[in-house]
């Protein structure tokens, strides 16, 4: 489908945010993604996987002529994202999507721990907005966002998370803001101060769950902590892709059944327990 650029602006440094609109219905879920063809040339040849940063319903409604919108958050790291940063209002782009499996919000969850490492923050805004619309036992779900970055200039969307009512905790590797270290350290700190738990599958009750996106090493560490404490943990993986539909088999990871799974189709969101972390 074709989408139209409404706005494309630098957030800070090499980070950009693009807002796009589309005709009809998209039915995207937080954690899902699109494949975006950044221009009509053969170089770059392939489309780029981009997660939904924000999913915005038509306002006014579709029937009254409104158009659905979504945002992507990206860092200029190479040729494709460089071209993306030059796109202007009114430019038309071909996309495929929504693709893949998004985050599942458990109906028992009263506490969400959202962990974003670096650009892993991109899909977490859509997720946080979605969780903030949910209620459990007629009360709001408490949301904590842990952001881990290299240095303070890499912190993105902090105010946006706070505006939705999330508590934001920051870690920087150089200690320029917040806790010196990584967002794994933030999780460890939380676990020592206030124990987090998911309810047992039988027996009911409320509890907390972890949602994480970021570099593989970070996800592995978080998955280890979560599985050790039996906390439900979903991770979103970022892999190089060609098709985005499960056809090319290019973006595989090893899962517990010892088989390869396509991140594009069976993911990008996996339950931490599904992944064979030793083989990643």
């Amino acid at each position: 489908m074709q989408v139209v650029v409404l706005e494309n602006k630098r957030v800070i440094g090499s980070y950009f945010k693009m807002r796009l609109s589309y005709d009809g219905v998209l039915n995207a879920l937080p954690g899902q993604f699109i494949m975006m063809k950044v221009n009509n040339s053969y170089d770059p040849l392939l489309s780029r996987p981009m997660s939904f940063h924000r999913i915005i319903s038509p306002n006014p409604s579709l029937e009254k002529g409104g158009r659905g919108k979504f945002e992507i958050l990206y860092q200029v790291v190479g040729k494709g994202t460089g071209i993306m940063s030059g796109l202007k209002e009114g430019d038309k782009i071909d996309i495929l999507g929504p693709l893949g499996r998004g985050f599942l919000i458990p109906d028992w969850m009263d506490r969400a721990i959202i962990i974003a490492g670096g650009m892993g923050v991109a899909p977490m805004m859509a997720l946080t907005e979605e969780i903030s619309r949910h209620e459990v036992k007629k009360s709001k779900i408490s949301i904590s966002v842990f952001m881990g970055v290299k240095t303070k200039d890499d912190i993105l969307c902090r105010e946006d998370f706070e505006r939705i009512g999330a508590e934001v905790y920051v870690s920087t590797e150089d200690g320029s803001l917040g806790k010196k270290g990584t967002c794994v350290d933030l999780l460890k700190e939380l676990m020592t101060n206030t124990p987090l738990f998911s309810p047992p599958s039988e027996g009911g009750g409320c509890g907390g769950a972890i949602f994480a996106c970021g570099p593989q090493g970070m996800l592995k560490a978080i998955a280890g902590i979560a599985m050790d404490k039996k906390i439900l943990c979903q991770v979103s993986l970022d892999k190089r892709m060609a098709c985005g539909t499960g056809a090319c088999l290019g973006c595989v990871i090893k899962v517990k059944s010892q088989k390869y799974a396509c991140v594009c189709k069976e993911g990008p969101v996996f339950d931490a327990g599904e992944i064979n972390w030793e083989m990643l």
């Binding site: 053969y42 170089d43 770059p44 040849l45 392939l46 892999k239 190089r240 892709m241 060609a242 090319c248 088999l249 290019g250 973006c251 595989v252 990871i253 088989k259 390869y260």
Partner: peptide
């Protein structure tokens, strides 16, 4: 067939390399 370990694809100038390994 299980196929080859990842990374299995890389984009090149106006092309791509794959080593899926006949999964």
């Amino acid at each position: 067939r299980e196929g080859n370990p990842p990374p299995r694809i890389v984009e090149t100038s106006a092309g791509m390399l794959n080593s899926i390994g006949l999964q």
